[in-house]
Amino acid sequence: MRVPVSQPQADPVLDLSVLAALRELGGVDEPGLVDELLELFLQDSTRRLANLEDALARGDGLGLARTAHTLRSSSTNVGALRVARICMDLEACARDGEVRDAALRVRELARALAAVRAAHTQLRRAA
C-alpha cells in the first residue's frame, strides 16, 4: 500500500512557538540554550543523514526506519517540524519497503535540514 503523500512544505522549517518555549525554559540561567540545542541537532542530524544514505544504498529498511525515528524525536524537540514530518513519512515508507519513496524522502530531508541550518544562521544574526 502506498503511503499517502503528505505536504511537508506546509510545516514550518522552525516552529517559533517551540523555540519560544525552549527560550523560556533556558531562562536567565541559560540564555544560549536554544542556540546550543539547534547546534546539537544540526551536528547530530548531519551524521544521521549520512547514515540514512548508507542504509538506502544497502537497502537496509530497518536501519532507515530506526534512524528516521530517532531524528523525528529530536527534530520535534527543537521545533524543526518539517524535518519531523519527513522523518515520519520516511519511517513509514521504510517499514513498508517502499524503497523509491524512501529515496525521495531522504532527498527531501536533506533539503529540509539545509533550511533549518539557514534559519538557524539567520536567527543567530538577528540575536
Binding site: 525554559l25 540554550l33 540545542l37 541537532f41 551536528q43 530517532t70 529530536s74 524537540n77
Partner: peptide
C-alpha cells in the same frame, strides 16, 4: 539517550 537534544533537555 543517543539523541543529544533529548539528552540535553532531560539533563536540564
Amino acid at each position: 539517550d543517543d539523541d543529544p537534544v533529548s539528552l540535553r533537555l532531560i539533563a536540564l
